[in-house]
Design a binder for these strands. Structure first.
Lengths: 219, 219
DNA sequence: ATTTATTTTTAGGGTTGACTAAATAATTCT
DNA sequence: AGAATTATTTAGTCAACCCTAAAAATAAAT
C-alpha cells in the first residue's frame, strides 16, 4: 500500500503526465507538490523501487500500470467525496477540494463502494471531471476549451480546468455554473478575450478564463 | 493543531482516564496504543510541552482542559462518522470502527457541522455511546452494566462497552442489538454467568459478556 | 528493611519525508 | 563548439515517531 505522501505524488504525476507519453520531470512534480526538486527526486526513486513508476535519471518519471491504478483509485475517491460534499452536505464547488484532499486517503473498499452507490453512481464531480469507475476506467467525454470554441455560437458549460477557489468564486460571481448556457458573441483579436452572454447579461472574460472553461455544443 | 498521532494519544488518555482523577500511566497508554512504553513517554512529554496534558515523571499524564477539548473533538467526529456509516452507507455496527478511526482525523469544521445536521443531530452512536456536542459536552446517561443489574428483571440494551468486531458479531449471533429487551432469568453463583431471555429464546452468557453490555430499566 | 519485581525513563538508533548546499548533467545561447 | 544557464541529482541534516537495551525509580514480597 502506498503511503499518504506516495499517493499524493502518484496523483501529481498522473495529472502532469495526462495525455503526454514522455516522463514527468522532477521539477514539475516538485512545483505541483509545493516542495523542492531534491524531495521529488527522493520520492520518485522510492516509487520506482515500489514499481509504481518507471524512472531513469534525468528522464523523469512515468507511471507503471500499477502506479496508474493507484493514482486513479485516489482520484476516484477524491471526486466521489467532492460529489458527496456538494450533493449531501451543502458545500459549494469552491469549498470541496481541501476537504476531499484529506478524505481521498481513507482506506476502505466498502466505504467507497457504498458511497458510490449512495450517490447513485455519479459520472462527474462538481467541477465536471469524470469519476473513474472501480476498474480505473475514465470515461472520455467530448468537450472543448471555450477559448478554442468557434464563434459565434452557444455552448453549455460542462467543466472547469482550474478548480481553485478563486476561479470558481469568480465564475459564481459572473453567473457560470455547470450546465449554464454560454453564448459567445465575439472575440477580441488583440488579447483573445471574449464577450459572452449568460442568462441575459453580457460579460467580458479574459483568454485565461476562457481556457479554463470546458464547454460542449448545445445539442 | 495536534498531529494525527497526537490526536490518537489524546483519545487514548481520555478513555483511560475517564472517571478517574489520577494520571494515566505511560504503560497503560502504551498498551492501548499498541506501542512501547518508551514511545508513550516520548509522546507524553511532547503533549506536555504543547500544554495538552499535565505530566510529572513517574506520575502519569492527565489531560489539561485544552487537551480534553481536543480529545473530545476527535471522539465527536469518530462517533458522528460511525453513525453516518451505519445510517447511510449500510455498515453494520462491527464494521464501522476501523473506518471511523481514519475519518475522525479529517479536519474541517464545516464538514463535521454539516454531517451532524445531515444525520439530524444524533445523540448516540451505533454502539450506544453518547456523541459529544460542539462545545465538548457529553450527555451523561443513566445506564448500568448488565453484570451488575438486579435480577430477575427485564432491561433494554442501550450500549456496549467493548466495541470490537468479535464481541459485536457475537451479540448479533445471539440476537442482541441496541434497543433489544433482555430478560435476566438467573445468575450462576459460581462464575456469575447469566441466563437471559431474548425475543423468546433463552441464552447463557458469561460474566465478561454481561459486563460489556449496558442496559437500562425498562420504563 | 532489604531484596525482588515491575514500571518508567533515558540513551542511542532507525525510517520517512522534508530541507540546503554543492556537484553533475542537460540544454540553450552566442 | 564552448560558455552560460537551467535542471537534476547527491550528500549531509532535521523533525516526527517509533524501536531496543540499559538505567533509574517505584512497588511488592519476604
Amino acid at each position: 500500500m502506498p503511503t499518504l505522501s506516495e499517493e499524493n505524488y502518484l496523483k501529481a504525476i498522473f495529472h502532469l503526465g495526462y495525455g503526454h507519453s514522455d516522463g514527468v520531470s522532477t521539477n514539475a512534480i516538485a512545483y505541483k507538490m509545493d516542495t523542492k526538486a531534491s524531495s521529488a527526486t527522493d520520492m520518485v526513486k522510492k516509487l520506482a523501487e515500489k514499481q509504481l513508476v518507471n524512472y531513469k535519471k534525468y528522464q523523469g518519471a512515468k507511471l507503471t500500470e500499477q502506479g496508474r491504478q493507484a493514482a486513479v483509485a485516489v482520484i476516484r475517491k477524491h471526486r466521489l467525496w467532492e460529489t458527496f460534499l456538494v450533493e449531501k452536505l451543502n458545500f459549494s464547488w469552491d469549498e470541496v477540494h481541501q476537504v476531499a484532499e484529506q478524505l481521498e486517503h481513507v482506506e476502505s473498499e466498502k466505504l467507497i463502494d457504498e458511497l458510490d452507490a449512495y450517490l447513485d453512481f455519479p459520472k462527474f464531480d462538481p467541477h465536471g471531471h469524470p469519476i473513474p469507475d472501480k476498474n480505473g476506467h475514465i470515461h472520455k467525454t467530448e468537450k472543448l476549451k471555450l477559448s478554442q470554441a468557434p464563434i459565434p455560437n452557444t455552448y453549455i458549460c460542462v467543466g472547469v480546468n482550474d478548480s481553485s477557489a478563486e476561479f470558481l468564486q469568480y465564475l459564481d460571481k459572473i453567473g457560470i455554473a455547470l450546465g449554464t448556457p454560454i453564448k459567445v458573441l465575439s472575440k477580441e483579436v488583440f488579447d483573445e478575450s471574449l464577450t459572452i452572454s449568460i442568462g441575459g447579461g453580457q460579460v467580458h472574460i479574459s483568454k485565461l478564463v476562457a481556457s479554463n472553461l470546458y464547454v460542449n455544443f448545445n445539442h
